[in-house]
């Protein structure tokens, strides 16, 4: 299936905007396409999953812990917030799942089915595909003074 990079980038931007508006209650201020993702620091989380069909790709996000905590604070009640550290990974996984699904829905014709793997996450560690020699599309987003990265590795 032949898909133009320009269409991939515009679908990614659309999905990122929609999901951050609906699930983070905020707007993305800037998008910049950069060549490589930065290393994931100990104060950030990486979340990722595989898009299994019909486009073969790995999709990932790097999000600062501070940003995730702010979202958890506005979403959870006090009793749930006691476990906020357990919820950070859950939140970035949910963002990966929702953005990747919405991205594929935007990119493909409506009758075309697609599959996603279950998401993974780690604090302070990049997923292996960030370092593979393959075609990568990396977007740097500015959201409320935080930098968030979206990394798509194509096969």
């Amino acid at each position: 299936m032949e898909i133009k990079e320009q269409d991939i980038v515009s679908s990614l931007k659309k999905s990122l905007s929609e999901v951050f508006e609906n699930m983070a209650f905020t707007e993305i201020e800037t998008f910049d396409q950069i060549s490589t993702p930065p290393p994931v620091t100990s104060r950030s989380f990486a979340g990722w999953l595989s898009i299994e069909a019909p486009l073969k790709a790995d999709f990932g996000l790097i999000i600062p812990e501070r940003f995730l905590f702010n979202i958890l604070q506005s979403t959870l009640d006090e009793s749930q917030l006691k476990d906020w550290q357990k919820m950070e990974g859950d939140l970035i996984s949910e963002y990966c799942n929702t953005i990747a699904g919405d991205f594929m829905k935007n990119l493909l014709p409506p009758d075309k089915d697609f599959d996603l793997s279950l998401p993974n996450y780690k604090r302070g560690e990049s997923p292996a595909y960030f370092y593979e020699k393959r075609e990568m599309i990396t977007l740097a987003l500015t959201v409320e003074s935080d930098k968030i990265y979206c990394v798509l590795g194509l096969e």
Partner: peptide
């Protein structure tokens, strides 16, 4: 409620008697 929101998948779920299928991100 799913992030796998193709119309083909939605129709399949409805044919399996789902009351409704909503795609993430959910519209409140």
């Amino acid at each position: 409620i799913t992030s796998l929101g193709s119309s083909a998948r939605q129709q399949k779920l409805v044919s399996e008697h789902a009351m409704a299928v909503f795609t993430k991100p959910l519209s409140l």
